[in-house]
Amino acid sequence: MGNKEQTFQKIIEIAYVMFAENGFEKTSLAMIATEVGISKPAIYYYFQSKDQLIAYIFDELYKEIQQDIAVDYKELTSANFKEKLLELGYKSIEAQGKDPYFNKIFNQYVLLAARDESYKSQLVELETSFLTSFVEVLQWGVRLGVLDDTPHIEAKAQMLALVYDNIGNFMLTGNQLNYRAIWKEAVHSVIQGGKDDK
C-alpha cells in the first residue's frame, strides 16, 4: 500500500472515531488533519469538504450493513436453520462489542437524516431492506418446513429485526445485559419446539 493509500485509510479511520466521539458538528477537517499528522491543506487532496468525507463514511457503513444482514439462502436447511439464525445475531453482537464507535456514528447519521432528505431516504431504504431480509429468511423457513405459515410470519420477522437492532442501541449505552441470551430467546419465540442451542 502506497503512502497516499495509507494516508487516505488513516483519514477514514481517524474521522470515523472523531465523528463518533464528538459528532459531525464539533469535528473539523483541521482537527482530523492534525490527528492524521498532515496539514489542513493536504487533507483537501483527499476530500474537498467535510460533507464529502461524511458521505464517504456513510457509503462504506451502508455497504457494510447490507453485507452483514445478507443471508445466503442456499446455506439454509431445515437442520441448520435455527443455528444460522442464532449466528446472525451472535455475529452482530460480537462485531459491535469489538467496535464501540459503530452505533455512535450511526446515530450521528440518524440525526443528520432529520434535516437532510438524501440521508433520510437512504436510511429508510436501508431500514426497509433490513426488515425485508428478516421477512425473507422466515419465509424461507416456512418453505423448509421449519416454521408454520401463519399470517403473523411478517410480524415475527419484524420483531426479530427490532430485537437485533435494539441490542446495538443498548450496547451503545453500556448496559451489561446478556445479549446472546436475549437474541436466543427472540429466536426461540419464533421457532418453537426446537432443540436447545448453545
Rank of each mutant, 00 (worst) to 15 (best):
M1E: 12
G2L: 07
G2V: 00
N3H: 09
E5H: 03
Q6C: 06
F8G: 02
Q9N: 11
Q9K: 08
A15Y: 04
A15M: 05
G23V: 07
E25A: 10
E25Y: 10
K26N: 15
T27R: 06
L29H: 02
L29S: 05
A30M: 08
I32N: 04
A33M: 05
A33K: 05
G37S: 05
I38R: 00
K40T: 13
Y45A: 13
F47R: 08
K50I: 01
K50A: 02
I54T: 04
A55G: 07
Y56C: 08
F58L: 09
D59E: 14
E60I: 13
K63Y: 08
I65Q: 13
Q66E: 15
Q66R: 10
D68M: 14
D72V: 06
Y73K: 15
Y73R: 11
S78T: 15
A79N: 14
A79G: 06
K82C: 12
G89W: 04
Y90V: 12
A95Q: 11
Q96M: 13
G97N: 01
Y101Q: 04
F102T: 02
I105D: 00
I105Y: 01
N107L: 05
Q108L: 03
Y109H: 02
L111C: 08
L112E: 11
A113L: 06
A114H: 01
S118M: 11
S118Q: 15
S121G: 00
Q122M: 07
L123Y: 01
E125R: 13
L126A: 03
S129T: 11
F130T: 08
V135P: 02
E136L: 14
E136G: 03
L138Q: 08
L138G: 09
V142Q: 05
L144A: 09
G145D: 05
P151G: 04
P151F: 03
H152D: 12
I153H: 03
K156C: 07
K156P: 02
A157K: 01
M159V: 07
L160T: 00
A161Y: 01
A161D: 09
V163C: 06
V163L: 01
D165M: 10
N169Y: 09
N169I: 10
M171D: 05
M171I: 03
T173R: 15
N178G: 08
Y179C: 05
K184C: 03
E185F: 15
E185L: 10
H188V: 09
V190L: 05
Q192E: 10
G194Y: 10
